[in-house]
Design a protein around this nucleic acid. Structure first.
Lengths: 178, 178
DNA sequence: AGCATAAATAATAA
DNA sequence: TTATTATTTATGCT
């Protein structure tokens, strides 16, 4: 049988390409294996610093030129990104992370300042729902799921997330008590 | 004024005690600083293996005697646990993690077998909520509004706007269940 | 001592 | 990228 040509255009992602025999993108001289290695390490180092993808994105947006979304960081870590984009992003992340680690050496407080987050940002207190504004009971969820023809778990999570969205956007906290 | 005695009984947690001057629990000879160090490292090593607290808990439950809940692992990592409990849990976690790392060396597959998770467990496909015209009914809106303790009109308009947006952008009008 | 689930985080459909 | 769904972590409760 004839060999199937491997299309290696702009649309293929690093994660898909890296497992192929030739690990160096010939045309552009991009070392995919190196990128994979870095991506894996980046995640571990990020977590070691206790940073979220969102924090990294926001900090990069503030210091580097263009905007870096949480999704972008996520996609880089998962290698769900084209070699060209990865090649461009890698040095930016590398430099930033090294600097972040440098500040962390000098103390957690310095890192947080560097990242630009509120140093005292505390987890929101868990809300206790009163009977008046309680989430739908298990039975009600089941019923709604049936009526909407959705999986019960999907509906449960939807209510969970929906409440969060509403809480975040409305100035009035309809769900009682912080 | 008289000195306030620091109560250091069974109810105080490692995280609270470790910042105090005396870092060795005198009565029981527990080195709190060592536990803190280990807890921090444990988390990083766990994440490096790509494991969740739930996975660790379940695996421990399967191999070691008693049950270890996700909450238990979480509380250990956050040091929200009494010195006595921490002291008891530490060697168990240490031994297990070392073994997990050993298997991971031999390949990701081996680790997953050791952990006991389904190797092919894939993230659930993201559900596309595409409300068709008939959904939700007036009664359902009333119910949802009541459950969320929101004004009915607010909810109705929200769905109206949402449908409108979706109608403009989506081709299919069928409720899709993934 | 752990369950239920709220809050936070990661992943992804569009 | 944005908006928002799914997953993971943290915690109120008893």
């Amino acid at each position: 049988s004839s060999a199937v040509p491997i299309t290696c255009g702009d649309l293929a992602k690093v994660g898909q390409l890296v497992s192929k025999p030739q690990q160096v993108s010939s045309e552009e001289g991009i070392n995919l294996e190196e990128i994979r290695e870095f991506a894996k390490n980046f995640k571990i180092r990020r977590l070691s610093l206790g940073l979220t993808q969102t924090q990294v994105g926001q900090a990069l947006t503030a210091t580097e030129g263009p905007a870096y979304s949480q999704s972008a960081i996520c996609r880089f870590e998962k290698l769900d990104i084209t070699p060209k984009s990865a090649q461009k992003l890698k040095p930016v992340l590398e430099k930033w992370l090294a600097e972040a680690e440098h500040w962390n050496q000098k103390g957690q407080q310095n890192l947080m300042e560097f990242v630009g987050g509120e140093p005292s940002k505390k987890r929101k207190r868990r809300t206790s729902f009163t009977p008046q504004n309680a989430l739908p009971t298990g039975q009600e969820i089941t019923e709604i799921a049936r009526e909407l023809n959705y999986d019960r778990e999907v509906v449960r999570v939807w209510f969970c997330n929906r409440r969060q969205t509403l809480k975040n956007t409305s100035k009035i906290n309809v769900f009682q008590v912080q």
